[in-house]
């Protein structure tokens, strides 16, 4: 296979496990110039990971890669205009040639990012696309990621809140997958995660203070109040 020079990319980064793993692939195969962090005011955004998103810039600093923060009201479809704005800025400022996402299964998310990148004449990479979701959890573990569950949104999942992804967690999720038919990587919105450490972090993060809250549909969210 011919070796082309590494493409300059930006990674859509939420601070959760999927964008975290996608970033590890991006670092291996491309020249990552920046992270794009979408901060949505809508807790039920169709596109963007919302619980604790304000801490994503602390994670980006721990990684040591420049970042672009783009605020959005999170209104369906209009949030895509805000995403496009952030990608255009990354293209201008960092001369990126492609975007990397952590999309796994969501055709809705993937096709919208594909449309934006195609319009901007950029490559689009989805390195986790269609991957076996239990295998994805195992890969995170094998690669020494430290991930904590910070949101659970479904009946029977309450006990997963605050847990770290380890072998016991994976067994528990496999059991729940069969019993409750959940998406084991949580991309269906069943749970949200937060990356405390990864092979590319320059320093591990630690949650100093957090509180639990319940949303209007009964989902449990761990709100991080202090992180170092």
């Amino acid at each position: 296979m011919s070796i082309s020079p590494k493409l300059k990319t930006a990674v859509l980064f939420s601070g959760g496990k999927d964008s975290g793993l996608a970033l590890s692939y991006a670092l291996e195969h491309t020249d990552v110039k920046c992270l794009i962090i979408m901060v949505s005011q809508n807790l039920e955004s169709y596109m963007f990971h919302t619980p604790n998103i304000k801490w994503a810039q602390v994670q980006a600093k721990a990684i040591g890669i420049p970042f672009i923060i783009q605020e959005t009201k999170g209104v369906k479809e209009k949030e895509l205009k805000d995403l496009e704005k952030a990608i255009k800025l990354a293209k201008t400022k960092y001369k990126i040639q492609g975007i990397v996402t952590g999309a796994i299964e969501s055709v809705y998310q993937a096709s919208r990012v594909q449309t934006i990148t195609n319009d901007l004449d950029l490559e689009c990479f989805n390195p986790l696309w269609q991957c076996d979701q239990i295998e994805l959890l195992k890969e995170l573990l094998d690669k020494k990621f430290e991930i904590i569950i910070i949101g659970v949104f479904g009946y029977g999942l309450e006990k997963l809140i605050g847990k770290t992804i380890d072998r016991v967690f994976i067994e528990e999720v496999k059991f729940l997958k069969d019993r409750l038919k959940i998406n084991p990587a949580g991309e269906g919105g069943e749970f949200e995660s937060f990356m405390l450490n990864a092979p590319y972090y320059t320093k591990r993060l630690e949650i100093i203070k957090s509180t639990m809250t319940v949303d209007k549909e009964g989902g449990k969210i761990m709100i991080i109040e202090e992180l170092k």
């Binding site: 296979m1 011919s2 082309s4 493409l7 692939y25 991006a26 195969h29 491309t30 990397v100 490559e123 990479f125 989805n126 390195p127 986790l128 696309w129 269609q130 991957c131 076996d132």
Partner: peptide, 18 residues
């Protein structure tokens, strides 16, 4: 595999292999 970029293997080839 017809992908020109190594990273696209993950998206267009690995799912077929799986």
């Amino acid at each position: 595999n017809i992908c020109n970029n190594l990273l696209h293997y993950q998206e267009f080839v690995r799912p077929i292999e799986d």
